[in-house]
Design a protein around this nucleic acid. Sequence first.
DNA 1: GACAGAACAACGATTTAAAC
DNA 2: GTTTAAATCGTTGTTCTGTC
Length: 320
Amino acid sequence: MRMPREMFPATIIDPESGEIRMRRSHPMINNFNQFITFACRCNMDIKFIWSGTDAKALVYYCADYITKTNMSFHDTFSLMQKAVGPNDNNNIPENSVDKARKLVLRCYNSLASQQELSGVQVGTYLMDHGDHYTSHEFANIFLIAVERHLQNELEKNKATLASSSTTMPATNTNSIDFIEDKEEKTTAMMNEQFLIEQSTDPENLVLINLRIDYQLRSPALETVCLYEFVSLYHRKLFADKDQHNTDRPSTSTEDVRLNPGRPLQERYSFMIEHPQTNSRGIIKRIKPIVPVLLGPQIPRKDREETQERYSRAIATLFIP
DNA sequence: GACAGAACAACGATTTAAAC
DNA sequence: GTTTAAATCGTTGTTCTGTC
């Protein structure tokens, strides 16, 4: 709980400590800058770092803040001891599983009863609004699938270059069919996760994921990166009229004049290689969402090598 | 293995938004 | 207010998970 702060009728510089004391008309208002507040649209607690001592104190505060646990170990163990204590005098014979279950429950209740809860947490729980709220929608991007695909492409290109002296490199834009060897193809597909959906032919099923959607997107979206693609666009089941309005950057004034009502969002078709090119397409979102980058998870055997590689790369960036 | 409940996806209905 | 499309909501069916 934030404590009330000292109020100051005007902004002054304390002649003894040299500290700048910003004007505060209410004890519960943080230091703030109106322009930053306007730009960021969020609360803040801004502070002028006046001296080296202030800077060190701030570094200590930040490090302590981001590394703190919800409850210190000695507090946790004291509460556990308190919870376990009464059980020593309990001589009623019970099933050992039930006893263990009750012990864990008692420990948890002791910890939970000492857990600090904010007013917002309590309010949203009582109002049945869930355990969180947000002003934006989020979508996960599993980078591991993209990275593994790029790794496969890189290795394939290396192999092609190595044998280029004798044979011409084969070009194939299909993401799955480029691997000639059946075993390699199976291994590459096992490294990615797919959704199984209908293709253009209702009798056939195809493997679909974000990487394929992005890779085989319309050429009109060539300059859009994966992050923007997820943020600004999404797949849509296309009707006949959708097919006639694809690959047009925006609704022109002439279209608006001819077609009353709400204007169409930008629509784009997939490349012909996409297994759902005739049934689905890409539509621009009215309200962009926030992509969340997940992974990649590095195998343990590769972790040290990767860390060393990253360290070398970072060193070349910062050491002249 | 059977069952119940949770989680998720798909689909249609309804609401909201945008342009005139 | 009208028209149109996007977004949201609610229902339904399927799959997954945990328990017995």
